[in-house]
Design a protein around this nucleic acid. Sequence first.
DNA 1: ATAAAATGCTACTTAATTTTAGTATTTCTT
DNA 2: AAGAAATACTAAAATTAAGTAGCATTTTAT
Lengths: 137, 137
Amino acid sequence: MNFSKTSKYALRILSHMAKDETAQYSAQQLHEDINIPVRYLRRLLTDLSKSGFIKSTHGRNGGFTFSRSASQIFLSEIVDSVDGFESINGCILGYDSCAFDYKCPMHVIWQETKQKVINTLKNTSLHDLRKNDLVFD
Amino acid sequence: MNFSKTSKYALRILSHMAKDETAQYSAQQLHEDINIPVRYLRRLLTDLSKSGFIKSTHGRNGGFTFSRSASQIFLSEIVDSVDGFESINGCILGYDSCAFDYKCPMHVIWQETKQKVINTLKNTSLHDLRKNDLVFD
DNA sequence: ATAAAATGCTACTTAATTTTAGTATTTCTT
DNA sequence: AAGAAATACTAAAATTAAGTAGCATTTTAT
Ligand code: SF4
Ligand code: SF4
């Protein structure tokens, strides 16, 4: 039960950026703040731009800012963009395709918990994180 | 949010075996039943033996049987033995070590959901799976 | 103009996970 | 005694995920 390292990175990046939602962050700055290998971080930032969470401005004073309000970016979207929603929602036994008509015992037992996970991710926006903000770096 | 492929395999293996708890299963048989690459399956079975869930008997009519009651094998133990408990319980942002004194917003938000996951895994035994058994192969 | 500081693209490298192979050993059947 | 059918051990190959490098481009400061 885990997110991929890359998903965790993405959560780190965006939740950190949400601390000052309108600020612009450079890869270098973020690297110093949240300790992700800088070249990989840059790639992720580009990916997150392409996914529409943030937008980049080029050139000397460039960097990244949110492309929509943090209150409209939900954790589920972030994980989905990196790992794919199937990583959360897929079969707990790892079957690619399953006749969902007949739900196996494991399915039944896991169902509610999975739904809780999904709901938490779907209902939590980056803005929500600010509610009980504590500096952590 | 995911288990490793190997953990999923382990869950497949043991939940399948729990359908007939006292039966003996050979790797070949299990391979045909649950469709895991047979050589890898064999290695996993050996690992699961070492972890104490099942025991092996060698030789021609050999195979694997549970080494303790399925009602005393909990899903959390299985996942723990393969991926490690940290994979479930660890930091959602992927930090190796964190001053747990100050819990960051993400921690607070994830806490309850994580606990639900842990509780489900800790409270569900392989025997519990049989309650609403439906054949799935 | 030129240099600095930033992102973007593409390919390569390294590390981790998953799969396969070879060989040895055990036990049962005949 | 020989062969069949099983597990055990170890190494290697293949695949996937994570991290690195080089170079191009954009914009700003001087
Ligand atoms: S029913 Fe069982 S096998 Fe099918 S998707 Fe659900 S958990 Fe997986
Ligand atoms: S407080 Fe935040 S950074 Fe620390 S372990 Fe919890 S989620 Fe991770």
